[in-house]
Structure formats: C-alpha cells, structure tokens
Design a protein around this nucleic acid. Structure first.
Lengths: 100, 100
DNA sequence: CCGTTCTCTTTCCAATAAGGAAAGTACTTT
DNA sequence: AAAGTACTTTCCTTATTGGAAAGAGAACGG
C-alpha cells in the first residue's frame, strides 16, 4: 500500500478524482475545473496516458476538434489503491478518509 | 481549500500524520516507521521546522543524544486543512475520506 | 589516549519534475 | 487571407528529491 507518484502530484490527483466521477470529460472542462493552462493539462494528460491511467479520445463537436479524457480500468484501480494508501496514512492520525 | 505543498510530499505527509497521532516521537522511531534514511528524515524534518509545522527538541536518554519531533499548533492546523482539501478532492469521485 | 560507536546534520551530486511562455499544428470561420 | 479554435511541443529556468559520503560532538572500550 503505497502512494502512486503518478497520481500523487496535486494536479494529477485532481484530474483523476474528477475523471473517476464521470465517464468521460472534455479537455476544456477538466482544464477549467482543475484551474490550469492548456499546456499544463496537456502535459499531465499525456503523463497519465503514458502510465496507462487515462485514455484520450479525439473527435469533433460539429466541425471543431474536441478531446475527451477518461479513466481507464487500470487507472481506476490505481486511483482506488492510491486513496486506500492515503486513508491508511491519514488513519494513523486518528482521522479517517473513509466512511465507517 | 488547497493542498499544502509542504505537507503533500509523500514522506512529509507520513511524518506529519504520524506526529499528529502522538504527542512527541523520537527521530529514530519516525525514521523507521516512515522507512527513510537518517539524512532524508533530517532534511524533511528541517523543512517542516522551517515551515513552522514541527518543533525539534534535543535532549538525552542516558548519555546519548536524542531528538524528538512534535507537531506544532500551526502544523496541526495545516495538517487538518490539508486533509480537508484531500477530502474535498476525493469526494468528487464519490469516495470519502471522512467518517459519516 | 586513540579509535569506534552513536545520533544525527550537511554537503555533494545527479535525476526528475513542474510551470510559464511561446511557437507549432491542423482545421474552420469570417 | 487573416484570425480563431483546440490543443501539443518545445524551450528554459527553478525547485525538489534522494542516495552517498563526509562531518560533528559526545561517550565508551581497550
């Protein structure tokens, strides 16, 4: 049970948590929610894709290009494991990260 | 509600969570629990002290020098805020870091 | 006394990461 | 043709990290 460095970075943790809630999310939506620039999101998204945690799908909305991000199954597993590791660490202090 | 970079680093998160549970902890105990070398713990402890989050007390056990680490009040506050920020992020995904 | 041990602290170093700015790509719209 | 959309890459500079090794100060053993 250890923290996954790919997921632990603040920006990526936010991206992954956001994607875990949704099926797919648009690049622009994620960028705005996380509050980063295009270039920063693009780089982090590539890093997550490189780790096999996120799938990047390109398509169109009308005639405009659009990119969607989606947590892959391994990405979801890694995220759950990461949260479990956080819970284990935080639990030491008497706090909890999980219900019950 | 944002992640505190001083606390977010994996090693320091573990140190702070450990200290949050105890009043004071010995350097050697923390080093072994966290699983780092003397030099690494020494550096992180200094970083936490520099941020005002940890107090470092030196004393003796018999005739041997010993160092104790303790979370300061600001350190505890920063830790609680950090955990709250983590909870907020993780909560997006439908998971929880808090009881109830 | 000298060398070793104990308990950290510092220095040195090499690797990695991260962000901002700006340029680039590939189209589409005006 | 010029400008805009939606990203992607490159460039560059700063920050962080960890391991290894050397240091520091006191105490113990022979």
């Amino acid at each position: 049970m250890h923290l996954d460095p790919v997921i632990h970075a603040p920006v990526r943790l936010q991206i992954v948590a956001l994607l875990a809630a949704a099926d797919e999310a648009e690049f622009g939506f994620v960028r705005d929610q996380v509050g980063v620039s295009d270039s920063v999101l693009s780089k982090h998204a590539s890093a997550l894709e490189g780790a096999g945690y996120v799938e990047i799908r390109k398509g169109y909305v009308g005639k405009r290009p659009r990119t969607w991000l989606k947590l892959s199954a391994p990405g979801r597993g890694a995220y759950l494991a990461h949260v479990a590791a956080l819970q284990a660490i935080v639990a030491q202090s008497g706090l909890s990260l999980t219900p019950e």
